[in-house]
């Protein structure tokens, strides 16, 4: 975080608010989860927040994001409605998908959050198609497609990068490389540790940010976004990161033995939330934190009080008009 002095304080505050908000929401979900009030498997973003925040702070409201089942951070970082998110996790009709999607399918089109999928890699071509439509309409907006290192194994990843480069589409691909597809290390799945280099071969600029530094992520995003808006075609960012919790659920998973505690603890030592917090005055930090705490309490209370969808809703939204 050596170059922090060059970044203005407003941005630092925004980073801190967003990182803190995601972390606290996830921690509250983890706390509530054992009560079984949350009717949806949760893939927590704890530890990976900086990627979503660094990218989304560089985007405009009208830009679109497409995500994955580990998508709470992206949803919140892009400005997704917290109340609707928590209600969705509770399976309530007031949720962002009326309770029909759950944690893995968060969407908020008002804030450019175009949905998430539970099937690895499936949103990458959809994001690419959206970018095609933006270019077709000569829009100045762009698409950011988030996915993990597991998605790189899928054919759709390669097919999409090829097409995006071929058509010079306005899309930023973001690989959140947390090393594991569930419990499978990426070097058990890939010959080489070179995801970002592979992207270059399809015909787009690409780089890796290896240390999770949110300022580096933000700067790189800005650099590529400017090029994308100039019509220069897609770009690719591989951001190394670390999932602190188990693949799915609220707990640690070191007992499984597939990774060591040391692997995670070095990321925890450089936790961007802590480091960014130290750049702010105690008063500023407390002001941000207390506001976020109130917002979280309100969101969980909203979810608790909201009704479940009624029986007849089961056939609603299969089609635009029921057949």
């Amino acid at each position: 975080m050596s170059k922090i002095s060059k970044i203005n304080l407003g941005l630092t505050e925004r980073f801190y608010r967003s990182l803190y908000r995601i972390r606290k929401v996830e921690e509250e979900i983890a706390r509530i989860y054992p009560t079984d009030k949350i009717k949806s498997p949760v893939h927590l973003s704890i530890g990976q927040e900086a990627v979503s925040v660094g990218i989304c702070e560089a985007l405009r409201l009208k830009d679109k994001v497409f995500g994955t089942y580990r998508g709470h951070a992206m949803y919140l970082a892009k400005g997704g409605d917290l109340k609707k998110m928590i209600a969705e996790l509770y399976g309530k009709v007031t949720g962002c998908a009326k309770g029909k999607g759950g944690s893995m399918h968060l969407i908020d089109t008002n804030h450019g959050i175009m949905g998430a999928s539970a099937i690895v890699g499936t949103m990458i071509p959809v994001a690419t198609g959206y970018a095609y439509a933006l270019r077709y309409r000569k829009s100045n907006s762009l698409v950011a497609a988030f996915f993990g290192d597991g998605a790189v194994d899928e054919g759709a990843f390669h097919e999409s990068l090829n097409f995006a480069a071929l058509k010079k589409l306005p899309i930023l691909f973001i690989c959140e490389n947390n090393t594991y597809a569930i419990h499978s290390h990426h070097l058990k799945r890939h010959h080489s540790d070179n995801i970002f280099i592979r992207a270059r071969t399809y015909g787009m600029p690409s780089e890796r940010i290896g240390d999770g530094d949110i300022f580096k992520i933000y700067r790189a995003a800005n650099k590529y976004i400017a090029k994308i808006r100039q019509g220069k075609g897609p770009a690719f960012l591989e951001c190394l990161t670390c999932r602190w919790k188990e693949h799915v659920g609220p707990n640690d998973d070191f007992d499984l033995g597939y990774r060591s505690e040391d692997e995670v603890s070095c990321w925890k030592k450089n936790d961007p939330l802590k480091e960014i917090g130290l750049l702010l005055s105690t008063a500023t930090r407390e002001r941000i934190e207390s506001k976020v705490q109130v917002e979280i309490e309100e969101a969980f209370s909203f979810a608790e009080k909201s009704p479940f969808p009624s029986k007849e809703k089961i056939y609603q939204d299969v089609f635009a008009k029921s057949l």
Binding site: M123, T128, G129, A133, F163
Partner: peptide, 13 residues
């Protein structure tokens, strides 16, 4: 596969 996804994404837009 991806071209079907591209069509879907374009339709979303």
């Amino acid at each position: 596969d991806a071209m079907t996804g591209v069509a879907i994404g374009a339709a979303l837009a």
